[in-house]
Amino acid sequence: MLINSVIIILREVFEAALIVSVLLAMCQILHLSRRYFLFSLVLGSLLAIVYAINISSISMLFEGIGQEIINAALHFISFICLQILIFSMANSSSSKMILWAIVGCFAAAFVREGFEIIIYILGFVGIEHLFDSVIAGSFIGAGVGFSIGVFFYYLIVSFNSLNGLRLSLFVLTLVSGAMMIQALQLLIQADIIISQKPLWNSSGWVSEGSVIGQILYALLGYESTPSPIQVVAYFMSLLFSSTLAVKSLNAYKWRIKE
């Protein structure tokens, strides 16, 4: 149970830590305030608790697909907020829109990953022979995930500001694609989007269950058997985000020249 808890919690924390560390590093590079991080953490945690407590009734909404709709909405919110941040963070340093986009990104990440952690741990309350190992494993998993986030943060800020920004925008562009592909996957699972025959099957090369598969899932939204609509949406998302990122970088270069 200990190892399983480590893996489950690490996977959830890693996905959130990736976005949070990159955005915090961008704030550091661009000298933006980070005080709303705590607000986002509290807001996201509260929403995650409310979601987790009501998950049974939420799941049965819309004839049993309520959970998919909420989770897809959280992914779309993250995607939209990421586009706002990719485009505007390096363009202007003081905007309420940037602030709310950061809050939206952080809070959506905390809700998305936090509710699963809460449901997982709450399920073991009262099961004495398992609870201790679940808690110990959860702390280890969270610690490792948090450490990866800290490492990523310091890796980005160790570069000069332009290269740090380049790396951050590159990662956010990839994560945007991951958000889009995961949102569509949830809508296919809910039968809102019609399920199509997979375009390819790469599970023989990289299994989604492997460590590399899990990392690629968090970073790229890796699916070994993606449907055509997911592939098209993914590359359109990458094209859109990278166009915004290039415009953003050019604006930043002008700013530092002046």
């Binding site: 799941s59 959970q67 699972q189 599970s203 269950g209």
Partner: peptide, 18 residues
């Protein structure tokens, strides 16, 4: 992974997956 499906089913609850 083969079906490309993932869903949390809370204790004493039901869940639908297509």
């Amino acid at each position: 992974y083969e079906l490309n499906r993932e869903k949390v089913i809370p204790g004493h609850s039901k869940g639908v997956i297509f």
